[in-house]
Simulated assay, not measured.
Amino acid sequence: MTFEYSHARPALTVDCVVFGLDQRKLQVLLIQRDLPPFRGDWALPGGFVQIDETLESAARRELREETGLEQVYLEQLSTYGAVDRDPRERVVTVAWYALVRMSDHRVMAATDARDAAWYGIDDLPSLAFDHDLILQAAQKRLQNKVQYQPIGFELLPKKFSLSQLQFLYETILDRELDKRNFRKKILSLGVLQELDEYETNVAHRAARLYRFDRRQYQRMLKQGVHFEI
C-alpha cells in the first residue's frame, strides 16, 4: 500500500490492562521496558499498530509477544491522545483491558520487554507514560461492568465455590457484601450450574462447586432478563 499526505500524522499504538485474581487480591500484569524511553520502568503491555492489522489484532499480538498471553477476554477501553504523552513523537493509543485466569497462563516476557510480572492492584510501581491513568480507567470500567455483565467469571477457575465468587465481587468492588443476600441474588439469576463436586485440599469444610452456565445466560438475554448484582 502507498499513501501520500500533505500533513503530519500521529503514530498509533495499543496498550493493554490485564487483570487477574489470586487468593489475596486483584492483580495487574506489567512488563518492564527494555528500550527507551522509560527503559527499565514498568508499563502496560503494548506497542505500535502495524499498517496491515486491526486494533484488536494489534492488541492480541502485543500481549502474545510481550507476555506470552493468548486467547484471553479482551475489550476496548478508550483512546488517549495527550500531545505530550510520549516523548518520542506524537502518539495516540487505543487502550484495552483483558481478564485472565492466572492458573491457565504462563507469563513470559519477550521482544522489547525485559520482564513480565503480576502486581497487586494496591502495590503497583510507578508506571511509564500515562499508563497509571489508563489503569485507573480500566479498574473503574471493570467495577461498573462486573455488576451488569458476567465478565467476572473470566477471572475464576471453571469450577468455583460461592465463597470464591463472592470474594471476586468483593475484591473488584472493594467493599463487603452480605453473604446471605449475595447468594440469594446470584442463585436467583439461574446462570450457575450446581455440580456434584466439592472443594478438595482445603482446611475448612469442603464447599460445593458451581460452573457458569453461558447458554442459560444467552437465553436470559433473548428473553430480556438482565444480569445484575
Rank of each mutant, 00 (worst) to 15 (best):
Y80L: 15
G81P: 11
G81M: 11
V83E: 09
V83N: 08
V83A: 14
D84H: 15
D86W: 11
D86V: 15
P87T: 12
P87E: 07
P87I: 14
R88F: 07
R88K: 11
E89R: 14
R90V: 09
V91W: 01
V91S: 03
V91L: 13
V92D: 10
V92F: 13
T93Y: 04
T93F: 05
T93M: 03
V94I: 10
W96L: 05
W96H: 12
L99R: 00
V100F: 00
R101M: 04
R101Y: 01
M102T: 13
S103L: 03
S103M: 03
D104A: 09
V107R: 00
M108Q: 15
A109C: 02
A110K: 02
D112S: 12
D112Q: 10
A113L: 04
A113W: 01
R114Y: 06
D115H: 04
D115Q: 08
A116E: 02
A117T: 04
W118I: 12
W118M: 07
W118G: 05
W118C: 06
W118R: 04
W118D: 03
Y119R: 13
G120D: 05
D122A: 07
D123E: 13
L124P: 02
P125H: 09
P125L: 08
S126W: 11
S126F: 11
L127W: 03
L127F: 10
A128K: 03
D130G: 05
D130H: 13
D130F: 12
H131M: 07
H131A: 10
H131K: 05
H131W: 05
D132A: 14
L133V: 12
I134M: 08
I134N: 06
L135T: 12
L135I: 10
A137E: 12
A137N: 05
